[in-house]
Design a protein around this nucleic acid. Sequence first.
DNA 1: GCAAAACATGCAAGAACGTGCACAAACAAA
DNA 2: TTTGTTTGTGCACGTTCTTGCATGTTTTGC
Lengths: 252, 252
Amino acid sequence: MLTDERHRIIRDRLAAEGSVLAGELATRFGVSEDTVRRDLRELAKSGQCRRVYGGAVAPAPFADAPISLRGGHAVEEKMRLASAAVALLSSGQSLFIDGGSTNAALARAIPHDLELTIATNSLSVASALSDHALVELIVLGGRFVRDLGTCVGADTLAAVAQLGADLFFLGSCGLDATRGVTAFDPAEAEVKRAMARNSAGIVVAVTDDKLATAAPYRVAGAEAIRHLVVEKTAPAAILADFQRQGAEIHFA
Amino acid sequence: MLTDERHRIIRDRLAAEGSVLAGELATRFGVSEDTVRRDLRELAKSGQCRRVYGGAVAPAPFADAPISLRGGHAVEEKMRLASAAVALLSSGQSLFIDGGSTNAALARAIPHDLELTIATNSLSVASALSDHALVELIVLGGRFVRDLGTCVGADTLAAVAQLGADLFFLGSCGLDATRGVTAFDPAEAEVKRAMARNSAGIVVAVTDDKLATAAPYRVAGAEAIRHLVVEKTAPAAILADFQRQGAEIHFA
DNA sequence: GCAAAACATGCAAGAACGTGCACAAACAAA
DNA sequence: TTTGTTTGTGCACGTTCTTGCATGTTTTGC
């Protein structure tokens, strides 16, 4: 059996079942477990699987995967959030849209008959907008970070600095009434801050699981949020805190 | 047994089963393994299979699902060109890749185990590379032109100016031995020129229908082409013109 | 904290490989 | 026919790659 053939079968099984066991593959292929471990190590090195004790699992999906769903099963919620957020748009506006699966859903939900100028550092957002004939699309380039699906770094910041927008759709990692909007990555947070600085208003759309949580890097205070789009199941107490600080609440 | 007949059988078996073993073919044909290896080497050189330890497998682009190719009808030809062009790559290189469907096919054909630095202004190329874990991807942002699928303009030019590359995979609109490489859009041509200026070598891969044609805007002279990847059916007379000007010809 | 399983690493045997060379057959020119 | 050339093939050589095993380490479950 060819090494390449083993790799192919492992990939197939990962795609189909999400995980593989080293021992099981060894007997199936008729080779030693050492060989299987070498295979898995190699696949993991090129990002085609993630190594775990006892075998391997499918890699974390990102960017423009089948339906670019990072959160997995929260897809429907995100699409509902996106539909609600789209109601804030009208022709002639200019927007910043950064990364995250909610923003990817938003981009797909934008009607084709709106005339907008949109700047984004997210590949999946840009791809989703590439067939919107009336959208003037500006890609904010830079070093592409695979885990985020966005571009960050000095080049990205410089590009943002040259632009201004009416609304900034901020993909949020954590959202807390006292700590505000927070992100997991420092470079990502820096880009978000730059976009926030150059925008007249900030829109944050989050699923319930991100409410009242915080990540290490601060992006903007809660008082900077103009529109907050949440699920209908969001706790009223938390929403009240944001409302007190000037946010307008929209239910999906 | 005729050499050509062996090649045909190998191709058939590759199409049917996806892989072949050198030893097995040797006994089946009644020839030495050396001869089989020579056959496989030859087929691999023309992109009809991919050589692996122990035998060969069907070429990469055909193995996985071909999804969003805009090119329409010449898809297979472009995939073959891409397979042949990939042979020019080796780990550690840095590349410019611009737009066009051939380059999109190329990006998809790049093996996952190559460690490359790639800068591109094409959305589809960037998307195709977003799951290559070992590729350092730099997105060249700017105003997105829907018809081209690429970013152009001052911002793009500025981003290109900061970079250098070993090879530039130039998506060509027209290719002529006297007029060189030409493009339909002036802004696009300007970006291509900038990439050409900052690259040590230029690679052009074109289908037959673009050979000996020219578009309005000049990108680079024929003498600037280091590698020219063409179909096997390309007219020898035209190729000779390019070869005389220093281009190395590669057949898909 | 302990035993078992899973793991990474080094190593050696063998398989597969590329290359150069010799030989034979096919072919073209003299 | 004879001679020279080309092409395809097999063999010998040294090289590279894969693989299983032995070793010691890390992780897991109890």
